[in-house]
Amino acid sequence: MEASQGNHPNPNPNPNRNNSVASSVPVWPTIDGPLGLSEEESVGYARRFYKFGFALLPLLWAVNCFYFWPALRHSHSFPRIRPYVVGSAIGFAVFATLLSSWALTFAIGGERLFGPVWDQLVMYNLADRLGLTGWS
């Protein structure tokens, strides 16, 4: 009985959602929809994650973009959230580019490019030296 009730759609609380033109405008600012945050809460969270991303936490920028994807995707919706999400997207893109460039340069260049310092910086040698390989 409870399960069957769950399948009956209630009258839609937002009549605009029945409009075919307005249906392209997202109602919820987060990908979790009604289970996520409201617009008021989202502004604070988006700002907080955007600022925390500067503390060597660019993954939070990525999470910000992922969570508030509706705000990022639709350019005219949620004007107060969008600056933080766009800023997070730009920050993460820049950081990912820089880190990927460095990591690839290090990996591909190898000892020819970096000399003996490469052996000291590469992680598995460093792990051996510091004795961090207790697991394997």
Partner: peptide
């Protein structure tokens, strides 16, 4: 620890930073 073991096992040249 598990990450370091994986790096060693597959000899991935990932740097410390």
């Amino acid at each position: 620890s598990i990450l370091l073991s994986l790096l060693q096992r597959f000899s991935l040249p990932l740097d410390a930073v």
